[in-house]
Amino acid sequence: MTASTIDDKDTWDTFIDESPSGLLFHKWDYLHLTAKHTESTLLPYAVYKGNEPICAFPLFCKRVHGVSTVFSPPPLTIIPHLGCVMSKNFEGLKQSKKESLLGLVAEDIRNEIRDLSPNYLSITFVPEFNDIRHYLWDRCDAKIRYTYTINLEQPLEVIWNNLHYKLRNKLKKEAGSGLRLEKSDDVSTLHRLVSERYRDPSLDIPPIKRGYLEDLVRAYPDRIGVYYLYDTEDEVAGVVATQEYKRFLLWMGTPRLESAHAGNEYLQWLLIRHAKAQGYRTFENMGANNRDLIFFKSRFNPDLTMYFQVEKKDTLGAFSEWAYLSFVKKLMTAAGRI
C-alpha cells in the first residue's frame, strides 16, 4: 500500500463520482476553492493497492504564527463531512477484507501526517464511515456528531404522515397562501441574512465568506442551488442553499424572517418534495448539532444519523484552538471579511 498526492482532476473526480460516499465537498474544484479561500495547502492523497486507488483522502495544512495544523475539512467552510472516501467496491467486501484495508489506509495516512508534524489535527468523516478504531488506537480523541436524514425512497404519503401534526397543519395553511418557490444563482440576500445571524455572540464561528460562496456556485451551478420563497407581494419569506449531488443536502439556511408565513417550514417541505421528484434517495438536513435548531428540524421526523470527528493536539495546538474560538470570529467580523 502506498499513499501519494494526485494532480489530475479527472482521475480524482472519477473516483469520487463512483464511490457511494463521495460528496460534492470532495470534488476537485470544491477542494481547490476551499484551499484558496482558507489560505491552506491542499494535499489530495490517494491510497493505492498496486495500481488501483482504494481511498481518496483530502487534507489541508496551514501554518499560522508557528502553529502547524492539518484539517479535513478546514474551519470557516461550512463543510460538515470530509475525510476519506473508500472505493466503489469497498462496501461489498467481507468484513475481514474491509478491516485489513482500513488498517493499511490509516497507517499510510498516519505516516503522511507524521511528516507534516501538526500541532493540531482534525478529521471529520462522512456519515457512512463508522470504523474509526485505528484513529482511537493512535490516541486521537473522538467526538460524535449528528445530522438529520430523511429516506426519500418512502412514498411521499408516508413522509407526509410522519410529520408532526402541528407542522402538517401549518403546511396545509401555507399551501393556499400563494407562496412561490424560485431557484437562483444570486447569493446576495442569502449571504446578508446568514451574516446577520452569525453576528449573534452566542455563535462561535463566522459564516462562509461571500466570495467563497460565489465561487462555489459558479463552479457547480447544477449542483448548488439557492432557493427563495416569495409571498404574493414579492417579499422573501424564506431562503436556503442546497447541494444536490448523490444526496439532496439542505446546506445553509436563514433564521425565521419577519413574515406572516411559516416560510422556513413550507420551504423545507417543498424541497423535500422536489428532491424526491428528482430521484434523490436521501434528504440531509444539517443542524442536528445545534440545540437551538433541533426542535424545528425534528418535526419533520428525520432519522438521527451519527458521524465522527477525530482530533489530536499537543499543548500548542490546544491553545491555538482556544484562541481561535475566542478571537477569530470577532476579528473577521470587525474586518468585514464575512
Rank of each mutant, 00 (worst) to 15 (best):
T5I: 15
T5V: 15
T5W: 03
K9V: 07
K9L: 09
D10E: 15
D10N: 15
W12A: 08
D13I: 05
D13A: 12
D13Q: 05
T14G: 14
F15W: 02
D17F: 10
D17N: 14
S19L: 06
P20R: 01
P20I: 04
P20Y: 00
S21R: 06
G22Q: 03
G22D: 02
G22S: 09
L23S: 10
L23E: 10
L23F: 03
K27M: 05
W28A: 04
H32R: 13
L33N: 13
K36I: 08
K36A: 13
K36C: 09
K36Q: 15
T38D: 10
T38Y: 12
E39Q: 15
T41D: 13
L42S: 01
L43R: 13
P44A: 06
P44V: 12
V47P: 00
V47Y: 01
Y48E: 05
E52K: 14
P53K: 06
A56P: 00
F57R: 01
P58M: 09
L59Q: 02
L59D: 01
C61G: 05
C61S: 14
K62W: 07
V64I: 14
H65I: 04
H65R: 12
V67H: 02
S68Q: 08
S68N: 13
T69R: 14
T69D: 07
T69P: 02
F71C: 05
S72F: 10
S72T: 08
S72C: 11
P73G: 08
P73A: 12
P74I: 06
P75R: 12
L76E: 14
I78R: 13
I79W: 09
I79N: 08
P80I: 08
H81P: 01
C84K: 12
V85H: 07
M86L: 14
M86C: 06
S87V: 05
K88C: 09
F90S: 06
G92Y: 00
K94F: 07
S96A: 15
K97L: 14
K97C: 11
K98E: 06
L102I: 08
L102C: 09
G103D: 13
G103P: 00
L104P: 00
L104M: 14
A106V: 06
E107R: 11
